[in-house]
Amino acid sequence: MDDDSLTAVLRRAADRQRGFNDRFAAYFDSLTDAAGGALETPAFGRFTARALDLVRELSLRGGKRLRVVLLYEAAALVTDEPVTGLDEAAISIELLHTHGLIHDDIIDDTPVRRGGPSTYYAYLREFPDRPDTALALAVLAGDLAAFLSVRVLLGSGLPPALALAMAAVHADVGATTITGQILDLERDFHPEPSTDLLNAVTEYKSTRYSVLAPLRLGLLAAGADPSEHDGELRRYATALGIANQIHDDWLDLFGDAETLGKSPGSDIRSGRRSYAVRALLAAADKSERELLDAALGDPDGDEETLDRVRDIARAHGIDRSLRAEAERHAREAAALAATWRGRWRPDAVALFTLLPTWTVARDR
């Protein structure tokens, strides 16, 4: 790979991210503007305002914004002119992501997200003597983010046909993501799930909304019909999504806490059968398996235990094999994108071709 080409692609992606972050902050300002906010809220009480604050805080705190980059670049496949609807679609998909993060952190009992308290734990700190209230408010904050994500599209002033088509994509992927979350919970009832099951969880829980939906929304906004390219878009999304998830699982076991913005080892402590955990269980001998069985699902597992799990993984070459598998799927995605040359705009095709490499090389 040409390092200069990758640098240029990453610079353009970073520009997309920065520009979106400003627009995202402005969106939240518009909801609560003192001169007449766009969202009508009750005049009484403080809980509604606090829920909005926490949704805003988590949404703006960070994240890779991969969905945003994919969405804008999908439109750039078709045209280099400004495209109506991209900002609304990007805000919409990121609000759906916020919804998912809030609910994931409830399900997984996660204290830290993006370098700060998860929404659930923020409420637990505010209501230490009323955990049921904290849980209810966190669920409702996640619900608020989900409904705001649809509202962005339907209340945006976009041409009605475009708004409806985008909302249809959004509603479909939202429902699909929930089915993926349900399958994710079922997965952990399988002591050693198959790769096919893990791939299905990845596709439905994250790939459909993190990769495929942005591609469809970007093409729609640019005036193209994504259904004409559905097969290849799905194949690209699947390969990129699996590469991304395997690398996320690698980071959860081998990543640095400060860089990640959260403590590694959450999959071990929660007992989640991730790609990394599956590889560990398949490779471990009897004595190693005893340690793993004790560590898996122990929320109080200490760093010493986690270090021993890492040692087992490294002894079996799992750190290297996971990286190799992620890179294999990334190469598959890149090869698929390379076939778009000659049909779509070359600079956007270059980004889709080179982006998978970044996906499996990032450190957070």
Rank of each mutant, 00 (worst) to 15 (best):
A171P: 00
Y121D: 07
H97W: 08
A222C: 10
L220V: 13
R151K: 12
E94L: 05
D188F: 00
G180F: 11
E203C: 01
A161V: 14
A221T: 12
F147D: 09
Y121V: 03
H97D: 07
E94S: 06
A136Y: 09
R114K: 05
E88M: 01
E186V: 14
A161D: 14
P226L: 13
L124H: 04
L95D: 02
R208N: 06
E88I: 01
G100F: 05
H99L: 08
G100C: 07
P160W: 06
R125T: 06
P82H: 13
L212T: 07
G157D: 04
D172N: 10
P159V: 06
E203L: 15
E192V: 15
R187F: 00
V173Y: 09
L135I: 00
I91K: 00
I102A: 04
R114T: 05
H99F: 14
G157T: 12
S227P: 03
R151S: 13
T202Q: 03
L96W: 01
A161R: 13
P214N: 09
T176K: 11
L101K: 02
L197C: 04
A221P: 05
A163Q: 13
Y123P: 03
I106H: 10
A200W: 09
A171N: 12
G142N: 07
L101Q: 04
L154H: 01
T202W: 03
A163T: 06
P191M: 08
A224C: 06
H103W: 04
L183W: 08
E186M: 13
A200I: 09
Y120C: 01
L220W: 12
L217M: 15
D109L: 10
Y120W: 12
P214S: 08
K205R: 10
G116T: 11
R216D: 10
M166V: 10
V173T: 09
E81A: 15
K205D: 02
I91V: 15
I93E: 03
T177Y: 11
E126M: 12
D105Q: 01
E186R: 15
L212Q: 13
E88L: 08
E192S: 09
D196S: 14
S149N: 05
D225P: 07
L164D: 11
D129V: 01
T110L: 00
L158M: 08
L220N: 14
A146C: 03
S194F: 00
G85T: 06
P117E: 13
I106A: 05
L215N: 09
T84L: 14
P159G: 07
V211S: 11
E192I: 14
T179D: 14
Y121N: 07
A171Y: 02
P226E: 11
D105N: 01
P191E: 14
S206K: 07
L219Q: 13
H103C: 01
A175N: 09
D196G: 09
L154V: 15
I102K: 06
D104K: 02
G116K: 09
